[in-house]
Design a binder for these strands. Structure first.
Length: 420
DNA sequence: TCTGGGGTCCTAGGACCC
DNA sequence: TCTGGGGTCCTAGGACCC
């Protein structure tokens, strides 16, 4: 048996923990650069805000309903997530952290075996200790736990915890095909065309025909709805295979100078992450493009790929490769909106030495990265940086309504909790 | 004026090997 | 006139997830 614990409206709930007066009011949280809506409180959902909608299109509704609009505060959300996960681990040793706001829990063998009761206890503990409300679904497979979770969120009467009993056709019939985990928009449309409208319908189709029309994952999903386990708990995450750092610009960027600083910054952040996970990259891809939505201006999308020989995680090597690859594909006269650096073909450190590489340089670079990382860890990220990343604020995000980073920055600690 | 930032897996088709 | 049968690797594109 599996449970899925999923935080309700996670980012919006995090905003409320330290500002209880937001309780009961419509709250939305915006993406980077204050672009799109990426989280909505229940009240905001009722008003009709859609996930991913650009905020500038919602001005009327925001004003009409006095909606609280917040910039994203990932320092806060990340830390709150850690607290929620820690609490979950107190209830079961077998936990898979699936995303910033979700965790799968293997229930088999938990004392008492009254799983629903244990999960209700856990739910209360999370609410009391972190202030975050969660919904919990229980089922025989991960897909069924997801489904039960959906049910728990939709039906308030169950009190945040729902279990799918064996042979529960009813619950499967109550879930639309779009809401099945692993079945997205495209496949839903295709499935509806052949008369498959609910989770129950999908479970009823002959599996091999699903594999033929879709793929093996869709088939496994359908089998999981029948209670056959295909997706197991993954407690030790595999090493990642790719790493991407990219941002939209607050203001469009035209000059090579500004663009190069942005690319160097992305390269820096990507290299830091790489070292943090003890990986090296074999291939680097750099890209930048003009606005995807502006058809009035000239459009351009550029990208270039280079091999890193030997594979590396050294910041200056990666900056040099990124800028070297980007320069030839940059074109003057375009207003670029986004740039990024992607590291591909990652592997853990043990690489073959290059015939042409000086061992002295290699050792020096390694020492340099150790110093760089330790200075930036103790004195703040970016304290020591390469000149290529610049000294201006090109990379500054538009973030006009960010709440304090209450739990991770000394000078932003809450001084009093309004309303308490 | 203004539209995020990450990931994973699968499949088909082409190039190559014997 | 007639042209086999078995592999692997790589890539692009398309699907999905949060």
């Amino acid at each position: 048996m599996y449970a899925l614990a999923d935080c309700n409206n996670f980012y919006a709930s995090c905003e409320r923990v330290f500002e209880p007066h937001l309780e009961g009011k419509p709250v939305v949280v915006l993406s980077n650069n204050d672009g799109c809506i990426i989280a909505r409180s229940q009240e905001s959902k009722m008003i009709g805000f859609k996930m991913g909608e650009p905020i500038f299109k919602c001005k009327g509704l925001v004003k009409k309903h006095s909606v609280i609009v917040r910039s994203s505060n990932f320092a806060l959300y990340g830390d709150m997530s850690r607290r929620v996960m820690q609490t979950i681990r107190l209830f079961s040793p077998d936990v898979e952290i699936y995303s910033i706001d979700e965790a799968f829990i293997k229930l088999d063998g938990l004392a008492g075996r009254n799983y629903e009761k244990i999960m209700r206890k856990m739910r209360m503990a999370i609410l009391q200790w972190t202030g975050i409300p969660v919904s919990i679904g229980i089922g025989k497979t991960k897909t069924l736990a997801k489904l039960a979770n959906h049910y728990a969120k939709k039906i308030p009467e169950v009190g945040g915890v729902a279990e799918i009993p064996q042979n529960s056709d009813e619950m499967l019939r109550a879930v639309e095909i779009e809401d099945v985990w692993g079945i997205g928009r495209r496949w839903s449309k295709k499935l509806r065309n052949i008369g498959v409208n609910t989770a129950f319908d999908l479970a009823a189709i002959e599996p091999e025909s699903i594999r033929r029309s879709f793929n093996i994952i869709a088939m496994k999903t359908a089998m999981e709805l029948r209670g056959h386990t295909f997706f197991r708990l993954e407690q030790t995450p595999e090493k990642r295979k790719t790493l991407l750092r990219s941002r939209s610009f607050g203001k469009p960027v035209e000059s090579w100078h500004e663009l190069s600083e942005a690319i160097a910054s992305h390269a820096t952040r990507a290299a830091e992450k790489l070292r943090n996970e003890e990986l090296v990259a074999k291939v680097l891809r750099v890209f930048f493009h003009t606005s995807l939505f502006n058809y009035q201006e000239p459009r351009h999308s550029a990208h270039a790929t280079v091999e890193l020989i030997p594979p590396t995680n050294v910041t200056h090597t990666i900056i040099k490769a990124a800028l070297g690859a980007a320069k030839p594909v940059w074109k003057c006269g375009f207003r670029y909106k986004r740039a990024g650096v992607q590291l591909i073909d990652l592997s853990s450190g043990q690489t073959q030495n290059s015939l042409f590489e000086s061992q002295e340089t290699k050792a020096r670079d390694k020492r340099m990265m150790v110093i760089l990382d330790s200075v930036n860890a103790s004195m703040g990220s970016g304290t020591l940086h390469f000149a290529a990343t610049g000294f201006t604020k090109v990379m500054q995000m538009k973030q006009t309504r960010r709440s304090p980073r209450y739990t991770t920055h000394w000078d932003e600690l809450p001084k009093c909790l309004c309303g308490l």
